[in-house]
Nucleic acid binder design. Structure first.
Lengths: 217, 217
DNA sequence: GTCAAGCTTTTTGTATACAATAATATATGT
DNA sequence: ACATATATTATTGTATACAAAAAGCTTGAC
């Protein structure tokens, strides 16, 4: 069922949804897309199911599948959920993290610092992702880590934008430091709180950014 | 894509996996099942995708789909994750729960008490589920609530068993009371901790039960 | 002009036919 | 007798044909 054909198409459709080639409520036309990808309807339908499973689209029986762009409310809810899940990862990691992982987090933060100095948002984002992935891993719970990665992937396009805000990278860096300190101290509560705040603020920043764009100047 | 045919089949297959009609690693035979359900391979394959999406089966390209019964380690991880997610729900609910919902929780606990006195495990389980669902709802975050429900559904067969342990219902009841008190007090930390413990202990109880069964007498 | 009933067209869901790949069995050589 | 190569079979992935349902359009009545 992993027929990479369908997976490739699903990835492509996902990208199209992220980049706004489809807007909320658009119907995904099996026949049109089949032609576009030069395949039959079957792999397209398989790809659709992937999208539905990951929540990027909804399916109405005998009507078709429609892209489901999250609105402001759902987006805030998703960020809040992500904050809670990452807080849980941090909480467990504080009890279980290895010394080598602590060193690695320090290294990553150094890289972040370099990226910040260079105002290299792409690189900062990449290192930031490594930071979070490392903590998922160090939760010592691979199931939880998988869930975290799933949500992270879902929110990726929204998490990235907020780094463009003035001073956000510096603030993010400081938050990282606080998190690592708590992890090193084995301070579960502190690590969880710091991580929750770190992620939640991303949602808020994103929200600010959105409303400032939507606002009439 | 919701073609209820495929959904019905997926539900049926899920039940078969839960009840142990298939064991871990069994290949799901498209043709055989197609005959069994008197449909073509197409709806069967759609159903397979549902199973894979919910983690009940894994798919190896060009080889087939195989049922993936979680082992002891993964099961513990799933319970730990559930504990963290429910703790998050409780944390948020402590800040947002409505008065009517608090009353409802009291009522549910009364029902639980009745069920316990009657040693009615089914009824206790049912009311217990209502208890948890109510708190998901009262987290005020429908996305988080949906995630919680998804995991809850996945763990349902395992959560039920532990109620058969002597004294477990009474202990569970007491934990419910603690949770409601914390929620009423708006004590986020207390509610989260109580809920985390309440769910985590279920995983442990289940583990005890399993090892006592597997153990040679 | 508007609304509704019925027909046409389009689109989804299902079955089946076909192609490609993996598993298995058989045969052949050493 | 064993290993390897080849042929056979079975199974997955894809395309297409068909059925059923929904959407859209035409026609007619008021």
């Amino acid at each position: 069922m992993d027929m990479r054909r369908a997976d490739l198409i699903a990835d492509e459709l996902e990208k199209m949804i992220f980049t706004g080639a489809f807007t909320d409520g658009d119907r995904l036309d099996e026949i049109r897309l089949a032609g576009q990808f030069s395949v039959s309807r079957t792999p397209i339908r398989e790809a659709f199911q992937r999208l539905v499973a990951s929540g990027l689209a909804v399916q109405i029986p005998r009507r078709g599948v429609f892209v489901a762009q999250p609105g402001p409310v759902e987006l805030m809810e998703m960020f809040e959920t992500m904050a809670e899940i990452e807080a849980a990862c941090a909480r467990l990691a504080a009890m279980r993290i290895s010394d080598t992982a602590l060193v690695e987090l320090d290294e990553i933060n150094q890289e972040c610092l370099q990226a910040m100095k260079a105002k290299d948002i792409d690189r900062y984002y990449q290192e930031n992702e490594r930071f979070h992935q490392t903590i998922y891993q160090q939760s010592g719970n691979s199931f939880l880590a998988k869930e975290a990665r799933r949500l992270q992937h879902r929110l990726k396009p929204y998490r990235r934008i907020q780094l463009h805000l003035r001073g956000r990278m510096a603030q993010s860096m400081a938050e990282h430091e606080t998190i690592v300190t708590a992890l090193r101290d084995g301070d579960s509560l502190g690590a969880a709180d710091a991580m929750r705040g770190h992620v939640a603020v991303q949602g808020e920043k994103f929200h600010h950014l959105m409303s400032s764009i939507t606002k009439t100047p």
